[in-house]
């Protein structure tokens, strides 16, 4: 009972998400929501390394593209069975992420951001220029949809929606377990002060590397899902602008919060997609919005709500303390 109560927001989200296809016949809405779920997974990756561990990675569109192109090339050109290719795509991204992280994480703060920005650009340039492999500007066409698992096939929009939702739920649960555990606290300690983290015996390099590798895995997973959902890949998914889009989702939702990626990505993807004219000029609003948020609400929508709730709870507790002379010690969270 208490587990349900503690996770009631997540469960309400899940319930709404499960029922959503029942209320609409509009395939386009379903398409957009599925797309936003895919991006959410990638943004969770960015959140883990940027929000929790404090290292702003600007290469994540690149990792997303590595996952997407790996799946695309393995299925289209190499005829590898779909789910095997899917696992391989995630694995390839993770391995690239490991080696990039090994070097990139030796740099700090600004250097790390610039370094990863350049890594992202290199990935873009390689995809763009190496057209014998990737199709270059023409892109990669005809990525197959996921193959059936047993009796379930993934031809319809609904089935794709539920498949992506299933992955999102897994990622969410994983992030919840991770960030609320001692391991997540370790990442936050590094974000807060790498110096202090080292003096309390944390191998910061190793912890940052693990966090980075998980974050690239999530980007690759999202990329692989994207490839077989959209079924066409162009080099622009790896461009810096895609990373900046992801960053916008994260900042609006709330960097360093569990629900931030979910809220931010869903809001912005659905808003921009439903207002077509926004597509091209979205940054006219989102650019200043980013600036406004980091100055006034650096923890975004979710962070803002959390602050407000924490303040209210604190006031309530003060009041309780005043009314009852014997204050009970509260343990656990």
């Amino acid at each position: 009972m208490s587990m349900i109560k503690r996770n009631r927001i997540a469960l309400i989200f899940l319930l709404v998400a499960l029922m959503a296809p029942l209320f609409t016949d509009n395939q386009y809405y379903l398409y957009i929501v599925t797309l936003s779920f895919i991006w959410t997974i990638a943004v969770y990756g960015m959140n883990l390394i940027g929000g929790y561990t404090g290292q702003l990675s600007l290469a994540h569109a690149g990792f997303f593209a590595i996952g997407a192109y790996s799946l695309g090339l393995l299925t289209v050109d190499a005829n590898v069975p779909y789910w095997f290719a899917f696992v391989l795509a995630c694995l390839i991204t993770t391995v690239v992420g490991f080696f990039v992280g090994l070097i990139a994480l030796r740099t700090k703060e600004h250097f790390f951001a610039i370094y990863t920005l350049c890594v992202g650009y290199i990935i873009y340039l390689v995809i763009y220029q190496w057209d014998e492999l990737t199709g270059g500007v023409r892109g990669l066409i005809g990525v197959p949809p996921p193959s059936p698992i047993g009796p379930i096939s993934f031809e319809s929009a609904e089935s794709n929606y539920y498949l992506v939702l299933a992955f999102l739920v897994l990622v969410f649960v994983f992030m919840k377990f991770l960030t609320e555990s001692l391991i997540g606290r370790t990442y936050v300690a590094i974000r807060n002060s790498e110096e202090l983290a080292q003096t309390i015996g944390i191998n910061t390099m190793r912890q940052k590397l693990v966090s980075f590798v998980i974050s690239t895995f999530l980007a690759g997973l999202a990329g692989a899902l994207y490839a077989s959902f959209v079924r066409f890949l162009g080099p622009e998914i790896s461009y810096t602008m895609t990373t900046f889009d992801m960053l916008t989702y994260l900042i609006v939702g709330g960097i360093g919060t569990l629900y931030g990626p979910l809220v931010g990505t869903f809001l912005i993807v659905t808003i921009t997609q439903s207002l077509q004219f926004m597509e091209e000029y979205r940054m006219l609003i989102f650019g200043p919005l980013l600036v406004f948020l980091v100055i006034f609400y650096p923890r975004g929508i979710v962070g803002g709500i959390q602050m407000w709730k924490a303040k209210r709870q604190f006031k309530k507790r003060q009041k309780m303390k005043r009314t009852s002379s014997t204050s009970t010690h509260e343990g656990g969270d």
Binding site: A113, M283, L290, I295
Partner: peptide, 14 residues
């Protein structure tokens, strides 16, 4: 860094 990115996106779109 995030603010700088926001400014960049704004100026370019403008």
């Amino acid at each position: 860094k995030i603010a700088a990115i926001g400014l960049l996106l704004f100026l370019e779109t403008l």
